[in-house]
Design a protein around this nucleic acid. Structure first.
Lengths: 337, 337
DNA sequence: GCAAGAGGTCGAACCGGTTCGACTTGTGGA
DNA sequence: TCCACAAGTCGAACCGGTTCGACCTCTTGC
């Protein structure tokens, strides 16, 4: 069931079979027909490892996901699924590699072992050792989020700053004068996670511009933390009447915390942020939020990666996504007591 | 940066380098030292494709997931993450393949191209063409869920029948006499999705045994359907006071539907079923449910697959998981009107 | 003192593809 | 009529590893 067997049965040489399959050199119609008949009869498909070895490309991408310990958010999950789908349309496969934590062996294996032609890195930090590693290994990659020097690499990002600005303005327009940003975890902020930093800055700036009071709180990526976070907000800043969040995973807890505190959304408290559309719609009430276009981002990430693989000397391209904010029903005018 | 280069610099033959690396034949301490020095200096790692070609094994598993269009449930997501992690501890990688929809090219590529040493199949049907395909290709595989002839293949499953039975008895003990099973989608049931069928049967049988009235309704895997489903239940069978579900994805909608109908859980309506623990805990109120041990299942799936790969003639093994039901606060005594 | 066997190393073959150079044959233009 | 060139095919080299058989040397046991 290898190419030699096909060649023998079709009465041609191995190279002719290869050319018939790839079309890189002309093959007579009669020969091609005979070869195809044999292939169909035997259900032959070339061995991927052999092909990869000879061609020097594996037709596989690596997708580096956050470690399994941190549960994937809805946006991330949608992104992963879409990457696999987009890769499939280009006849490529996707190798998963959890990163951070102890799983750096997996990352190393993929990078050094030449298992993949390129890598998509999720959740990168402003200073990310994995980026340096890929650069020194000369392996094409696209990051979700950008690093210190935006012009030097290929990336896709969400304009967190712009979105947060719009969320804050929206709340200010509704009359809120004390708002809080529910950020992602302390550790992530400390590690230099771009979206968290940009959100913080934009939040503070826009609040000042609108003349309203801004508070910020970090919250681990889990429901329990979200609940605790609401308690913290209530006790530290009882005047806060609205929250903006980029922490999807904490949302169920936030919701529960508000409910337990006897606060109705949006009557007593407004809630908005950057949230996957499916999640935002599933909430009750449905959340006014910036819907991250995970599918489009995945598609583009794959396209950029392929572009880079096909032309290693191409100049880096990138793209900032600025999704619009969808008005649903979790934000409302501030009630004047 | 290939094995020949290492050999040259260390002043030995390529085979000696190979043996030094694999330990399959003894190499003198001095030689080994020299080779390792060179390897460290150059940061050499063997090319995965070449190794796969020579060894006849790729050290990669295929994980066949439901297509991207159907959003993964929490249990499924946890399972995927755990499979990747378990594979990593054995120095294996995981190739993702969405299947079921149009993406069977991806499945075919993985199977026929010998890209993987074995496959883990999620969400299989009682009659599943992919199982036949893998069998005829002679590729080791483990299924999550079992097929018609349980003794003939390797699988892991959750004892849906047993769990549903316990859920129903639990509700019966609490005094409920009209209960409904919120099953997964019509299509899945029609396609012969095992868990859905077993749940249906067990539900009906246990209800009869307990002398209570049982209703069953199918519900698509999404929140909106869950909400519609509650409406349907309320209008068709107003006497129903409790629900058992195996449909995680519909839960947010079910919850919202109950809330809109003015029903408090568990005061007016009890809710239980087979649900990922994290999801059950994040609900309000937290759900009394059978917690599917996704992590353990993933670990075992990987172990079984490796066992099969290492000894293709081994007799099939399987395991039925019967998680216990965790009492939380979504079930309560039926209120006698 | 010698055979048996273990330790250590090498060269060559092999895994299953792709690709290059060369060869043959047929065709059209000068 | 002859040449140039395209079409069609083949054999060999190559990609980067692993593994087998053979060889040499040094112990060890009888």
């Amino acid at each position: 069931m290898n190419i030699g067997e096909i060649a023998k049965r079709a009465g041609v040489s191995r190279s002719t079979v290869s050319y018939a399959l790839s079309g890189k050199r002309p093959v007579s119609a009669a020969t091609a027909q005979r070869i195809n008949d044999v292939i169909d009869e035997l259900g032959y498909r070339p061995n991927a490892s052999a092909r990869a070895l000879a061609e020097g490309r594996t037709r596989t991408f690596g997708l580096v996901i956050p470690p399994a310990s941190t549960r994937l958010t809805d946006v991330q999950l949608a992104f992963v699924a879409s990457v696999v789908e987009a890769a499939a349309t280009h006849d490529h496969d996707v190798l998963l590699s959890p990163s951070g934590g102890d799983h750096d062996r997996s990352f190393e294996r993929i990078v050094t072992g030449r298992r993949v032609d390129g890598v998509i890195l999720m959740e990168i930090l402003l200073q990310d050792p994995r980026v340096d590693r890929l650069t020194s290994a000369g392996l094409p990659f696209v990051t979700i989020g950008h690093v210190a020097d935006p012009a030097a690499s290929w990336w896709i990002d969400v304009d967190y700053a712009g979105l947060i600005t719009r969320c804050v303005r929206h709340l200010a327009d509704l009359g809120h004068s004390d708002v809080v940003l529910i950020n992602r975890s302390d550790e992530l902020v400390a590690a230099g996670y771009g979206p968290a930093l940009r959100a913080t800055t934009a939040f503070a700036e826009t609040a000042e511009e609108c003349g309203i009071t801004a508070r910020t709180v970090c919250c681990a990526d889990e429901a329990a933390a979200g609940m605790a976070c609401v308690d913290e907000i209530r006790t530290r800043w009882p005047d806060v009447t609205a929250a903006v969040t980029i922490n999807e995973a904490a949302l169920p807890g936030v919701q529960r915390g508000l409910h337990r505190a006897g606060l109705d959304v949006p009557r007593d408290f407004s809630l908005t942020g950057v949230i996957a559309d499916r999640l935002a719609e599933d909430f009750h009430p449905p959340l006014t939020a910036a819907d991250v276009p995970a599918g489009d981002m995945a598609q583009l990430a794959v396209d950029l990666l392929l572009e880079q693989i096909n032309d290693p000397s191409a100049t880096p391209r990138h793209r900032m996504f600025a999704p619009s904010i969808t008005l649903r029903s979790s934000t409302g005018a501030r009630r004047r007591p």
